[in-house]
């Protein structure tokens, strides 16, 4: 019986219980003590070039799929790629709906519509994707994140939307 008040799932508690029941060592959560750096938008959204980054394991036909052992590689996907050429590889979520309508984890057509409607200035031509089931926070921090940041600087975007799966 569901609660009458809608409460989010306590994934931390359920992960602890599940790992214990399955005989896994306890999951070691990343704790970030520092306040994240904050940069307010310098101009209206309607003038901003927005980049899309998604961690749902999206790749394009012709690209290598992701593997499932701390894969810190990423893919550049041209936002003019038709949805029929996009694929999903990820081990930790139910990918059926994403494979039906990739916009549920990679809202590139949604953002293109918003650019056409003038809500954002433009969607950056290249979106970036990776497979977010990476258990090494160090490798994300030291390899993946800086490489993605460098691409965004090179692409001269104003802001990026990051979509987990």
């Amino acid at each position: 019986m569901a609660d009458s008040v809608s409460e989010p799932i306590d994934y931390i508690e359920r992960t602890r219980a599940q790992y214990e029941a399955l005989g896994y060592p306890p999951y070691r959560w990343v704790v970030n003590e520092d306040v994240p750096p904050f940069t307010p938008l310098a101009k209206p959204l309607a003038e901003c070039t927005v980049a899309l980054i998604a961690s749902g394991g999206i790749y394009r036909l012709g690209q290598k799929a992701f593997h499932f052992r701390d894969d810190v590689s990423f893919r550049a996907i041209d936002v003019d790629t038709p949805p029929a050429e996009l694929r999903i590889s990820h081990f930790a979520y139910d990918t059926r709906d994403a494979r039906t309508d990739v916009n549920v984890v990679f809202p590139y057509q949604t953002l293109k519509d918003l650019a056409r409607l003038g809500r954002i200035g433009a969607l950056s031509q290249l979106a970036y994707t990776f497979m977010g089931g990476i258990y090494s926070a160090r490798r994300v921090r030291e390899a993946l994140a800086p490489a993605l940041a460098n691409r965004l600087i090179r692409d001269e975007v104003d802001v990026s939307i990051m979509v987990p799966a």
Binding site: G62, Q63, F66, F68, V72, F74, I77, R87, L126
Partner: peptide, 27 residues
Amino acid sequence: REAEPQYEREADRLAAEADGCPGCFFP
């Protein structure tokens, strides 16, 4: 958690081998 690429479809593997993975980055 396999260490090899996990293609959605087998045909994707052949396409990737033919195309040499354009737009792939391995930091």
